[in-house]
Amino acid sequence: MEYYDPKDLARFGEVGKFRPDLAQKFFEYYGAATGTDGALSRREKALIALAIAHSKQCPYCIDAWTRGCLEAGSNPEEMTEAVHVAAAMDAGVTLVHGVQMHNHLDRHGA
């Protein structure tokens, strides 16, 4: 048995097993936030979701949003750029903490 079985993605709804009221609120919110055209198009939202899926390293989300991007009219070039945005943000988040390291060095005379 795999810990991340791709078939488990289709069972996402089962998270409502014990508190269906909370799950229902979540799925309504999720659908409204990601599945509708608004100030951002569904295609743009799918690319954001794909970037976050990589940054969070969620296999379910990568499967779901790779498909989601294609079904919103995107293409591998745009999707790859989205993953680079995620990677650059992750690198930046790490690197900007270097300033904290410098602050510490300064405070302690190093």
Binding site: D37, E71, G73
Partner: peptide, 17 residues
């Protein structure tokens, strides 16, 4: 038509693209 095993995007949005 999709290149792989997924559904087509929404027609009007794709047409604009």
């Amino acid at each position: 038509n999709p290149v792989g095993s997924y559904l087509p995007p929404e027609q009007k949005a794709l047409e604009a693209q």
